[in-house]
Structure formats: C-alpha cells, structure tokens
Nucleic acid binder design. Sequence first.
DNA 1: CGTACGTTTGATCTTTCTCAATAATGGTGG
DNA 2: CCACCATTATTGAGAAAGATCAAACGTACG
Lengths: 265, 265
Amino acid sequence: MISRSRPICGRDSLNTPEQHPLQLLIRKLETHYPLSDHDRQAILGLPYKRRHLEAQSYTVREGARPDRCAVLISGYAFRHKVTGNGDRQFVSINTPGEALDLQNLFLDESDHNVQMLTRGEVAEIPQHALEELVLSEPNVSRAVMVSTLVEAPIFREWALNIGRRDSRSRIAHLLCEFAYRLTMQGLEPSGDFELPITQEQLADATGLTAVHVNRVLKGLQSEGLLDRNRRVVSFPDWHRLREVGDFNPRYLHAIHTSEPARTLS
Amino acid sequence: MISRSRPICGRDSLNTPEQHPLQLLIRKLETHYPLSDHDRQAILGLPYKRRHLEAQSYTVREGARPDRCAVLISGYAFRHKVTGNGDRQFVSINTPGEALDLQNLFLDESDHNVQMLTRGEVAEIPQHALEELVLSEPNVSRAVMVSTLVEAPIFREWALNIGRRDSRSRIAHLLCEFAYRLTMQGLEPSGDFELPITQEQLADATGLTAVHVNRVLKGLQSEGLLDRNRRVVSFPDWHRLREVGDFNPRYLHAIHTSEPARTLS
DNA sequence: CGTACGTTTGATCTTTCTCAATAATGGTGG
DNA sequence: CCACCATTATTGAGAAAGATCAAACGTACG
C-alpha cells in the first residue's frame, strides 16, 4: 500500500545522515536572507525531534493549532485545500529545508492542510523554542519572517498560473518552478529530477484532470521539451520550456548570489 | 475617461473627513490581533501623507522597490499579476484600512502590481517610520506581521476557488468574501453593497471571461441569490449564497469578537 | 505471481471561450 | 439641461479546451 522502496529526493551526498538536519533549514533561509555564523549556531542549537513520515501522512491539518513546527529534512510535502465537494487543489509544494508551519507561529488555526507527497523525514521543533529564538535573535527573526512571507508570492503566481494559462503553459510553469527551486537550494544539481508526483497530483496542482495532464505531458515530450523515464524527468531545452511556461523566477525572491542556478538558465 | 462622480465606498458616517485616517488601519489590525491603547496611540503618531488616487492608478508595480507604505483610506484596490501574453489575474482585493505594501518591508522587489479599483485615498507612511515603530513596539510589530501574513490564506483560497470550483460557485464565493470582509471591518453595515467592480474585473478575479461572468450573474439573480441594481447588490438569501459559494470564512482569520458579522450569517 | 495503483488511450460530452453585434449607462462638454 | 462618447453590460451563435467515462495496460511491492 505504501511505498517502501529506495529513498526519494535529496542526492545522498547532500543529505547524509551525519549532517545536522537543521543545516538544510539554514540553507533555505539563506536563499532569501543572509545569516551570520552566530545566527547559524543559534539555529543549530534548537531542540528538535527527528521523525519519519509516510507518504500521504499529514503534518498540518486545517483547523488544527500546532504546537511544534516541522522542518522538512527529506522527501517532499504539499499544501492543499479541499472544496466542499471534495475536489482538491495544491497551493504549493515544499522541498527539503522548508518549514511547514511557520505561519502558525503568528496565526491561530491552520487554514489548509500540509501532507507528505513522498515519504520522508521532518525535524519537529517545539514552537516555544522557536519563539524564544526569534525573540532573542533579531536577525534570525527577520530571516524567519522573510522565509514565511516568501511563500505568499508563490500562491499568487499559482493563482495566475491556474487562472490564466492554458494547460500546456500551466504544466510547463510548474515544472520550471520545481526545477528552479531545487537548483536554487543546491539540491539535485545533476539536471534531471525525480518528479515525486503522480499525474493525478500534478492535476491537483494545476487545476486540471489526471487524464488531461497525461496528454499534455505526452505533448511536451513529443515537442522535445521534456524527457521522461519513469518518474525521472529532464529538460532537453530549458530555455524553451521556460518560455512555454511563461516562467519568470522573480516571484521566488531568491537572493542574488555569485552562484546562480548552474544547471539551469 | 476617468470617473469623477460621487465618492465610492465607505459610508460617509464611517469615513468622515474629521476621523484620523490611520484609525481605519487600527480597525483592520484589530480584526486580527488585539491592540492596547498605547499601541493605538503609537500608530496614530505615525507621519503620513494623504493622497488622492484615480481609478486604475498604480500604487505598487511589479519590480519596484517602494520606500513608503500606502494604507487605503477610501476606495478599493486590487493586487494582480499579468502573464506574458497579457492576461490578467487578480489575486486579492483590498478594502479601506488595509496596508497595500507591507510585504515590501521585508522583501526586496515587488512581485506583483497593486492598482486602484476605484478612485480613493491612501495615507502614505515612510517605510523608515514604520520600521522604527515596529522596532520599538513589539506588540504593534506582531500585529503588523499578523496582518501581513493573513493575506496569504486569501491567495490560497483564491487558488482553490479558481482551480477547483465551477463558475457559479466561484463567483458566489468571491461575493461572499467581499461582503464578509467589509462587514468584518464594520464597513457597509446596511446589507447591500456597492460592488466597485466591472464584470470584466470580476472575470479577472475569477479566471473567467466577462461574457461568462455576465451570464453567471444573471443566473444567480434568477435563482434569487443576488439582487442587482446598477452596481449595488444585495443577497436575499445569504445562507444559500454561502452554500453555493462553498464559503467558509475560516481562512480570513478574523478574531472572534462579541460582535460577529451582524448583517450576515 | 497477483493486486493495487498509476498510466495511457479512445470516444463523447460540457463548460467556458470567442467573436460579433446591440443596448445601456454614466460622464463630459456645450 | 441636453447631446455625445466611451465604457460597460447583454445577447446569440459557434468553437474549443478540457472534463468525463470507460477500458486496457504497466509496474512495483507484498
């Protein structure tokens, strides 16, 4: 019933057991806001509990009031909402290093669900520890605030994507975002990606049906914009895919470093 | 070319010239987070410049780096993004009292546009003044963060609305949100609303076309869910409209006060 | 090896879009 | 106050994108 095969996501070399799990969080924060050594140490000092999660398991449920904040260490998660008649819409996908419920540091009840896309691990940090850190370290506070805020532009871009692009652009855009974000965080530097997502989930992310997604995917492939081999994809013509997807990464608010996405662009 | 007729939005009784403009901001902040008298005074002490804006004028442009933060005093604004081929998608509508570019306190470049829906007024606060206030008043800081963060759920709900509801529900949902938010802030307590939006704009907000919006509106009207008289609408059967729109206000994160939306629900 | 899940394909149907024309409105200038 | 103009609303007919239904095919895991 539940997939138990090889580890998914995060090249082993980048995600070895001996690395401190919160290192990934630091890397993520730093894609949006610079941190000092001191800040990094403070973050590494946070208490946390490591936890394995199966695919489909929830980390946050609509209506819940979490008392801890999970940081994704390996695997992928997705945020979604469900309509009254059961249709589901993804509103973003989370990659390793991202905090899954930071907004609940400030808001009361969760207004959406977060669920594991694949199986993986999280580091659970007690909210009070996080709050204390944020109070005592203004720079970390700022970084946390920025990394929380920086998801809103993704929701906005998704609204645009779903509302105003046709199915081909829509899917291309999603692929671009996914690839770009992984590269931005230094994950998956090889140029091909294990797409951790079924076509049905891809449909839920784009507001389409699984059947249609399948046809569009085939179309992109026959156009030479996409190579698929099982769940591993690569983009033979990144430039054109980006055009088709009408993809402009500005909304991701990545800090401009000396090391731009190497394998892309 | 540009509308110059009577003032739009905000019953005069609620928005008299003699009222301090930032009072509206305070009211908005308090719908999400409690403020003390001290906090309120601190906010009222902010420097600001009052400014009239015509309909369609921009207050924030994608790519810009604003050095001031505009608070809407009267009239409505909308956030939107545009695709490469010119299609437009609204991602939220702002009502009086709301700050239009708080996120730029934390992020570099704006990733979307904010434009006036109607003509109206804003109070422009220099960013540095806002930053100082936020540094010296932790409770105000918290309130500002909450009110910034509280827009993200709206984007998520819109993504769901656009991606997974049919045109009828979609429009009903938008109407519900608009009515609910106004009521929540104590604006428009009379039960009917001046909808400050053309059908074309309604289309851009819902990911539909103007023609289709027109037909759906007629449908809702013939079902007895909507009364239209010019731009003034009322909802003869709020309960049913809410059902049709699959509207659950949880995502608006309104504080629970002793005064729930009086004229609604 | 079989079962459950995911993918692929075909045929048909529906919603929504497009194009185009007409009718109202509200604001403007005279 | 009235006539004119630009914008917005309304309507119809036809087209298209994407949904739905149903079936067959793969493949991974147990």
